[in-house]
Design a protein around this nucleic acid. Structure first.
Length: 701
DNA sequence: GAGCACTGC
């Protein structure tokens, strides 16, 4: 094996780590930092006083990297070298080098905030800025103060933000480790094309006809565009004169494809044949296809973002960042020198592209993370002034506190409640943790466990289908239950109960268009939730079937529990039509998503009140996964909304926080009225409550 | 009557 570049810097690394509590290591792809840093520190004795932890943003990475290190050290995986990911802990008392996902390390710090078992913590791939890594960065900054004598922290990052991470850790040293990428020649378009599909098609055909062999990787934004381009490519390549150029195999590649189809891409092509892979950004970091020599980059990506003032997610096509553009280009230089064709002008890259992708922490709802931080009970840290590498907006923090207050996870002063503490232990969104705890009181825990597990995996359940396949499917109506018309949560419960009756038969999943992988994941989640709930469960947690339904045919207990958990995700129907108004946020008109199984009554009207799992703006604002609830369950929630005092929740920090936020305000630029005054919001909540009371009076007549 | 990128506890 050729010597990895990082080993030439071994002495320098050891010396720098010796002298500094935190070191930033910048190493490009192929530098060997993921496999070698841990071994270097092991060799220099850091495993004598504890274990070396290396975090990874993805599970597969934790598994594959630890496997390689165990081979290099010639030990059995799970002994001296091991890994820990959700549902799987392959470590033992012998373990001295442990690879784990950042989420698992966060869970560990919940039960052991000082992380005393570790002498070294390496946050690998920190430039990806996953939500969990960002929280870990903040926690590490605090931890090195308390464990200055016996903890070393290493952060690996991409070139562009190494300086920033260093500044965050009091100007800690930065070490550069060369990568092992081949040069990639980059060319730009003169102008932005009218159609990215057409431009990609032309460019791919050009390369295929004129350039020597080597696979082509094309980055598109989503399944739809990928399928269009694949069929156009197939048609055009079929029409090429036989013998005028080598053969081509065209593969789509995206996350909603079943794994067996994804794997196809990795089988090497037959001789005299070029692979053309049309992919989402799954091929940017998660999957690496060897043999790619040409990259075509559309310059766009689909990104999910959260608007804290409306509680709504949107999935937008946005311009990629410079870091992403370079990551995409690098995919062409893994095996030999390559070429990258950017379908945008060089000026666009220089002037329009952000340096780095907006970190996830500034694009997500923070209720779960804030609850987690509050449950750590760090006396020296005010959560709202928590030292993030990039701070989330004030609105996002305020929104998280409001959500947590409405579901009783924190009290009026913003302190965590005992309920909140239990919720933080569950690996679920706060709304679902709250539902479980309420269900435990109402005697429907087993049902709630199923619903929570199903919603944890929801997007991966239904097999991703193209539009044409969908049309075909309409002729064969689904045999799946319909949630008794009460909503999608109930349907999820009924589906799982049926699957349980088949003894978790995988063919049953396939027959019903359910992703086997997704359903197995649900089963694992449910099992994990049962283990955590064991201590406090008041009733059986086994999957119940028809017997239970006779006792409560309308699932009233479960829907009432859901109403507590989703207190912040509540909507009231408009009086004359089937549109809903979301309560508790800036007034927002939303529709039931057409895929919902929620049923209308004999007059064609939806129920007066419903809870929703999420609001998502696509062509219009939709509530996805809704469930009918009853008016009198909603009453206490509205009372709580009425008494809401956000500045009290943040411990009066609102004023000072607003002052230190201005640099984040640009993020909200496109989010509409993110800065609506609190008084406006409160008056709207009051108006909603008045409408509710009027409706109550009418109902009582 | 519409459409969903990618991760993770």
């Amino acid at each position: 094996m050729a010597q990895l570049p990082i080993l030439q810097s071994e002495d320098k690394i050891v010396e720098t780590v010796e002298k500094n509590p935190v070191v930033v290591v910048i190493g490009e792809t192929g530098s060997g930092k993921s496999t070698q840093l841990s071994q270097i520190l092991h060799r220099s004795g850091y495993t004598k006083s504890g274990c070396i932890a290396v975090t990874q943003p993805r599970r597969v990475a934790a598994v594959t990297v630890s496997r390689r290190v165990s081979q290099e050290l010639n030990v059995r995986l799970g002994e001296e070298v091991g890994y820990a990911i959700r549902f799987e802990d392959r470590t033992s008392e012998k373990t001295i080098i442990k690879y784990l996902t950042d989420g698992v390390l966060l869970r560990e710090s919940l039960s052991n905030p000082e992380l005393t078992q570790y002498s070294v913590i390496i946050l690998d791939e920190a430039h990806e800025r996953s939500l969990n890594t960002d929280i870990l960065l903040g926690l590490m900054k605090r931890l090195i103060k308390f464990r200055a004598s016996n903890l070393k922290v290493l952060v690996t990052s991409a070139t562009l933000d190494g300086e920033k991470v260093s500044r965050f850790f009091s100007n800690c040293p930065i070490l550069n480790v060369p990568g092992k990428l081949f040069p990639v020649e980059i060319s730009y378009s003169l102008e932005r094309p009218k159609s990215y599909i057409e431009a990609s098609l032309q460019k791919a055909l050009d390369i295929h006809i004129r350039e020597p062999e080597g696979d082509i990787l094309i980055f598109m934004t989503g399944q739809d565009d990928i399928e269009k381009l694949v069929s156009k490519l197939e048609e055009r390549i079929r029409k090429l004169d036989e013998g005028s150029c080598i053969d081509a195999l065209i593969y789509p590649l995206h996350g909603s494809m079943p794994p067996e189809l994804q794997i196809r891409v990795f089988s090497p092509p037959p001789p005299n044949c070029r692979r053309i892979i049309v992919s989402t950004n799954i091929a940017e970091t998660s999957l690496t296809v060897d043999g790619v020599v040409y990259v075509i980059d559309s310059g766009f990506v689909k990104q999910r973002q959260y608007n804290p003032s409306t509680g709504m997610y949107s999935l937008d096509v946005v311009q990629i960042s410079k870091v992403q553009a370079n990551q995409r280009a690098g995919r062409a230089g893994r095996t030999r020198p390559g070429k990258c064709y950017r379908l945008y002008p060089s000026m666009a890259y220089k002037d329009d592209f952000l340096d780095a992708t907006v970190p996830e922490i500034q694009r997500s709802s923070l209720a779960g993370s804030i609850l987690y931080l509050k449950s750590l009970n760090l006396p020296d840290i005010d959560i709202l002034k928590f030292d993030f590498l990039d701070s989330p907006s004030f609105e996002a923090l305020e929104d998280a506190l409001k959500q947590l207050y409405l579901i009783d996870a924190i009290d009026e002063e913003g302190s965590i409640t005992s309920l909140g503490r239990t919720m933080a232990e569950l690996p679920l969104e706060p709304s679902l943790s709250r539902t479980l705890l309420e269900a435990n009181e109402c005697g429907c825990l087993s049902q709630a466990l199923t619903v929570a597990a199903m919603l944890s995996a929801e997007t991966t359940l239904l097999i991703g289908q193209s539009k044409s396949a969908e049309k075909k499917r309409k002729h064969t109506p689904s045999n799946l239950p319909n949630g008794s018309g009460l909503g999608d949560h109930i349907q999820f419960l009924q589906i799982y109960e049926l699957w349980h009756q088949t003894d978790y038969n995988t063919d049953w999943c396939k027959d019903n268009n359910l992703q086997v992988r997704g359903m197995m994941f649900v089963k694992d989640v449910r099992k994990q939730l049962c283990q955590i709930m064991q201590k406090i469960a008041k009733g059986s947690m086994d999957v119940k079937t028809s017997r239970k339904r006779r006792e409560d045919p309308d699932y009233r207990a479960l829907r009432k529990a859901l109403c507590s958990g989703y207190a912040n995700q509540l909507a009231e129907r408009m009086s004359r039509h089937n549109g809903y108004r979301s309560l508790g946020f800036k007034s927002q008109l939303v529709q039931v998503h057409p895929s919902s199984v929620l049923r209308t009554d004999e007059d064609g009207m939806y129920p007066d009140y419903a809870i929703y799992h999420e609001l998502i703006a696509t062509t219009r604002p939709y509530m996805r996964n809704v469930c009918a609830v009853e008016m009198h369950w909603v009453r206490p929630v509205l009372a709580k909304l009425d008494n809401l005092n956000v500045s009290k929740l943040s411990g009066g920090a609102s004023q000072s926080l607003e002052k230190i936020q201005p640099e984040n305000s640009s993020l909200q630029k496109d989010g509409g009225n993110a800065t609506e005054p609190v008084e406006d919001r409160e008056s709207k909540i009051r108006a909603a409550r008045e409408r509710f009371l009027a409706r109550s009076r009418q109902a009582n007549k």
